[in-house]
Design a protein around this nucleic acid. Structure first.
Lengths: 191, 191
DNA sequence: CAGTTCCATTGACTTTGGTTAAGTAATCAC
DNA sequence: GTGATTACTTAACCAAAGTCAATGGAACTG
């Protein structure tokens, strides 16, 4: 279970004995059944997650509709928007599949970073990488039509399509389910 | 000049003597004339910027059009997407106004973080904060109409509207200049 | 200061997504 | 397994953004 985390970290740095110890000491694995709700609107969040296996969706309600923010799958980190703030959440987090995750909390994080500064340094680098990746996603979204967004999703995260209901994908793409249905039809006819 | 940086950092932590020293030692101020190009397509980037005064726009070319990624103003950090990668840039960075910025580079960063671990810890926290803010922006964008996006921009960054030409704002909002023109007309008529 | 270029606006027309409603297919619960 | 709920598709209609073209004005240049 913990080796998945080391595998992920090895993309960013050389795994030293110290890092291995840091992960081994500071990592708690939890498993969640499909349908589990990790956080609901109004809830206080005290946990963040690194997904080892499974799929978590974050969403919120706007105009009575669920708006999907993100689908988190293997090797992705889920940090609730209100993590560490002690403020009530505006978002939901739910498991779309049985999910295995490493769970962190602010206290544990703090202790671990104090004991293993190398891990905090690595966290900074990873965070900065995530910022750049997010910016790329955002920019692609802004400069694409819904049809292009859908095609790009099929290309970059092909598995999602099998794992997630279509109307949730629609809201993830910022369109209505009916439109996604039409887009799919359009694409088929083009071929 | 450097006090602006401390002012910014004070939003995240208590400014210790150590931090003050770290900033004082590691900060180099540069000024740029309006129209200066900090990075062009194909260029290698070796610098990042913290804007003390002025405005920088990042954009790229797609289908022969400039697509504005971001307008950076006071207290914002500009990290080129290819920073530290040594790969040619797909983006441009240009100063829309005379600009004063603190300039960093990978070597300086590394040395400073080594000497002042506290600063790296702070950087991690700020990076994580930026991730969450980005996610909020992205989500707002996805769940809004172009008109709502424009109104929200007027509300959240009212000064931009005076500082930046309208067709660049249009591309920043992901729409055509003609559409922004019509949206503005619509808004006026509603009042 | 004249000429050019760039920018914002407007109009006619096209394309595409939103809305509403209905019908069919798939899934869930008992 | 059957009924109920939920998910997906289709169609007709509407609203808004894209496209193309033209115009007037502002800003830049020699």
């Amino acid at each position: 279970m913990k080796s998945e985390i080391l595998k992920y970290l090895s993309k960013y740095t050389v795994i030293t004995k110290e890092l291995e110890n840091a992960i081994s000491e500071s990592t708690f694995i939890k498993t969640f059944k499909k349908g589990s709700v990790l956080l609901k609107e109004g809830g206080i969040s005290n946990e963040c997650y690194f997904i080892i296996k499974g799929c978590v969706r974050s969403y919120f309600l706007k105009d009575g509709e669920e708006k999907t923010i993100e689908f988190y799958t293997e090797e992705q980190s889920v940090v609730p928007a209100n993590y560490e703030t002690l403020k009530p959440s505006e978002h939901y987090l739910e498991c779309l599949e049985d999910t295995i995750a490493s769970v962190g909390n602010p206290k544990l994080e703090k202790e671990t970073f104090q004991k293993y500064p190398q891990l905090e340094s690595l966290s900074r680098i990873i965070a900065e990488t995530i910022i750049l990746k997010q910016q790329v996603s955002f920019t692609e979204f802004k400069t694409s039509t819904p049809e292009e967004r859908y095609l790009s999703m099929l290309k970059n995260r092909p598995a999602l399509h099998q794992r997630v209901p279509q109307h949730q994908i629609a809201s993830y793409l910022g369109i209505k389910p009916e439109s996604l249905s039409r887009i799919r039809k359009r694409i088929i006819n083009k071929k």
